[in-house]
Simulated assay, not measured.
Amino acid sequence: MSHYKKRLALLLLLLIGFVLVSCGQPATPQTVEKVVTQVVEKVVTQVVEKEVTQVVEKEVTTIVEVQVEPTAGPFLERARTDGLRVGFVQEKPFGYVDDQGNCTGIDIEVTREAAKRLGINEIICVHLAWEGLIPGLLASRIDVIPVGMAIRPERCEVVQFTDPYQAQGIAALVLKENPKNIHGFQDFVDNPNLKLGASIGASELTIAREQFHIPEDRAIGYSEQVQVIDDIVAGRIDAGMYTAPFVNRYIQEQGPDSALERATPFDSPSYFNTGHGFRKDDPEFVQLWNNTLLEMKRDGTIAKIAGEFGYTDADLLGEDAKVENCCSGDNWQNRACLPK
């Protein structure tokens, strides 16, 4: 506040001196300095208080604008009237826009069916970057995250998830008929003649080398996924390790004439259990939605939809998969978030 003092002191000095003399007090330098300080502090305080008030009022207005709930009101009734806004990332087979411009994918279609059963006749697909899904949900830009998001304890702190209905494990792509009888990473430990391939930096390659101690000359890193596939077909390696949804998508797109298939069963050492994520402001609606998904598990609807996108029963979860198991403890990477 010293700049206010400098500007005001000179203007007030003569006036104060005049006042002191008029009051019969000697206008000594000490007296003048004391009075100047008191007057200036009072004036500066008033000026600063006014400016702070203006700043605070401005900030409060900004915060209110940010925090205004654009989807206020009973959630179910609003969704029935205005539609359900679904966040997705353009990634097959979870959620994507197809060649005809339609929003589809396993999670989109499961969401569409659940919404229909609750009287919500329209879903509105909102394309976001992966890192924007949770912020978009919390800011009410979208109403639900259905697409391939693993239920993890730290995410459960801000998102209300449903029970998971699919488990995205690691899958192996092998030659038709699986001639080397590959059903897990342990097969590469037991048979020193087997080789696998995976993308450089992928968790599948890290698991092979660090968890199962398969040497680098038999757990080979590739810069491009297509190179892995080419080497399987050529017989240079025996399997390619990917997430199960990638393998599902590849098999589906290649059709019945594909030279490769998914090795089943396959013992995946890690799983990502996924369901649907909502805000925490309407737990009754989330429970209603969760009950609808449970109904769809029981009547086979989820399995039917999943099959259309290349999923098998091994990728789906039953009624024993509970969200509370995924949100607490260290079991979130286990299938169905259950202890091994």
Rank of each mutant, 00 (worst) to 15 (best):
H3Y: 08
R7W: 03
L11Y: 05
L12G: 11
L12Y: 12
G17R: 13
G17F: 06
G17Q: 13
L20M: 12
S22I: 12
G24A: 05
G24K: 05
G24V: 01
P26D: 14
A27W: 05
V32L: 15
K34D: 13
T37H: 15
V39A: 12
V47G: 06
E49H: 07
E51Y: 06
V52L: 12
E59N: 05
I63C: 09
V68H: 10
P70G: 10
T71D: 14
E77H: 07
R78C: 01
D82N: 08
D82T: 09
G83Y: 02
G83V: 09
G83M: 09
L84C: 07
R85I: 04
V86Q: 13
Q90T: 04
E91Y: 07
Y96C: 04
D99M: 10
Q100M: 11
T104E: 10
D107L: 09
E109A: 08
E109H: 01
R112G: 05
E113R: 11
E113A: 11
E113I: 06
A114E: 00
L118Y: 00
N121S: 14
I123Y: 08
V126D: 02
H127S: 15
L128G: 08
A129W: 05
W130K: 15
E131C: 05
I134R: 08
P135W: 00
G136S: 12
G136P: 07
L137T: 00
S140R: 13
S140Y: 06
I142E: 00
D143Y: 06
D143R: 04
M149S: 11
A150V: 07
I151A: 04
E154V: 08
R155A: 13
E157P: 00
T162I: 05
Q166A: 09
Q166V: 05
A171V: 02
V174K: 01
K176E: 06
G184D: 07
Q186I: 15
F188P: 03
K195N: 12
G197W: 00
A198T: 07
G201K: 01
I207P: 08
A208W: 02
R209Y: 03
Q211L: 12
P215E: 00
R218I: 06
R218M: 10
A219Q: 02
I220P: 04
G221I: 02
G221L: 02
Q225D: 13
I237K: 03
I237L: 09
F246E: 14
Y250K: 13
Y250Q: 10
I251Q: 00
Q252L: 15
A259Q: 15
A259H: 12
R262T: 14
A263E: 03
F266S: 13
P269Y: 01
F278V: 07
R279I: 05
D282Y: 09
E284Y: 14
F285D: 03
V286N: 08
N290P: 11
N291S: 14
N291G: 10
L293Q: 09
L293K: 02
E295M: 09
M296V: 07
G300H: 10
T301L: 06
D313M: 08
D313T: 14
D315L: 10
D315R: 02
C326G: 09
C327D: 07
Q333A: 12
R335W: 04
A336E: 14
P339R: 10
